[in-house]
Amino acid sequence: MVSKKIFLNPNNTFTESVSKFWLAFTNCMKNGEFFDYVPEEYKTITGTGLNEKWGSTYIEYLGKAIPFNIAILGDAKWDEIEEFICLVYDYVVLEDKRSLFEKKINEYLGRFDIKFLFLKGQFITADFVANQPTVTEVLEWIDLYPDAAKAYRAALKKLSNKEDTRNAIDDMRLALESLIRDIMGTTKTLENQIQPIGSALKNKGVLPQAVTLVTTMLNHYAKYQNDNVKHHDTVDVNDSELIVNMTAIIMKYIRDRLG
């Protein structure tokens, strides 16, 4: 549940940013906006802070008492805040409200320049990967395609946490392949979807040059994956940004045109 920390310099502005983030979030809890996300028993905010239901939830799911500063909605530390928000997402927020809650948390993270993204109940470090405009745009709608979303978020987490680049890039391919499968209604591999995608775009009245551009991109994308990821482990970590952006651009175009 606890993410990798990247703020080690005591002279940086992280503590101030966290305070602003937490103030915005607690104000959301106090002004009633937060109540849209949670069941009735979690909606009581007293003059001294959270009601007893929150304390019992901590004990039930984390096996410990709720931190005092969290309970009174006081000036909490980042580790406490992070743990609290993850707990809220996993065990408190209504299932059909989770995407809205996630969007709200990411709005606050961006507003106060905290270098994390909140994805599916976890905070990941927001380096060049997660900060790409193409990526953030895809994250706004990818949950409509659950298989693609699962693979896409897994790739982002691995890349942002500097984990296995080969598996991360393969997850990107799987995300694209899963999206196309959902949209086209087939179970074919990415390579075998390229010609049908071209035909579908043509039937939608897409200009021939655009069809050629998209299918050419897909051909080279699939070849890169097969040659360097699927059959060999020769992926270049410096290609990560290119693959991330290409994946997002292709996914968005196919979704916009054929979804």
Rank of each mutant, 00 (worst) to 15 (best):
V2W: 15
V2R: 15
I6A: 13
N9M: 01
N9T: 00
T13M: 09
F14S: 04
S17R: 13
S17Y: 01
W22G: 01
W22C: 01
W22H: 12
L23D: 07
T26L: 02
T26C: 02
N27W: 02
G32D: 01
F34L: 13
F35W: 14
V38I: 09
T48K: 08
G49N: 08
G49W: 04
K53I: 11
K53P: 03
W54Y: 15
G55N: 06
S56N: 03
E60A: 15
E60D: 10
I66T: 13
F68Y: 12
F68P: 03
D79L: 15
E82Q: 09
I85T: 14
V88A: 06
Y89H: 15
D90Q: 10
Y91P: 07
L94P: 00
E95N: 09
K97H: 15
L100F: 12
I105N: 10
I105A: 05
N106C: 06
Y108R: 13
G110N: 12
D113T: 12
D113M: 11
I114K: 08
K115H: 02
F116I: 08
K120S: 14
K120Q: 14
K120T: 10
G121Y: 07
G121T: 06
Q122L: 08
T125I: 12
D127E: 06
D127M: 09
N131D: 03
Q132L: 15
E137L: 05
V138D: 12
V138W: 06
L139W: 13
L139Q: 09
A148T: 13
A149Y: 02
Y152Q: 12
R153M: 13
A155Y: 11
A155S: 15
L156V: 04
L159S: 07
L159Y: 14
L159W: 15
R166Y: 07
N167K: 07
A168E: 08
I169E: 03
M172Q: 12
R173F: 13
R173Y: 06
A175K: 05
S178G: 04
T186I: 05
K188I: 01
L190H: 04
L190D: 02
N192D: 00
Q193H: 00
Q195V: 03
K202D: 14
N203M: 10
K204Q: 11
G205C: 07
V206L: 05
A210P: 15
V211H: 02
T212K: 05
T212I: 05
M217H: 04
H220G: 14
H220P: 09
Y224N: 10
N226H: 04
N228H: 10
T234W: 09
T234E: 00
D236Q: 10
V237G: 01
D239R: 00
E241I: 10
E241L: 06
I243N: 11
A248H: 06
A248V: 02
I250E: 03
I250P: 00
I250W: 00
K252V: 09
Y253A: 12
I254N: 04
R255I: 00
R257T: 00
L258E: 08
L258F: 03
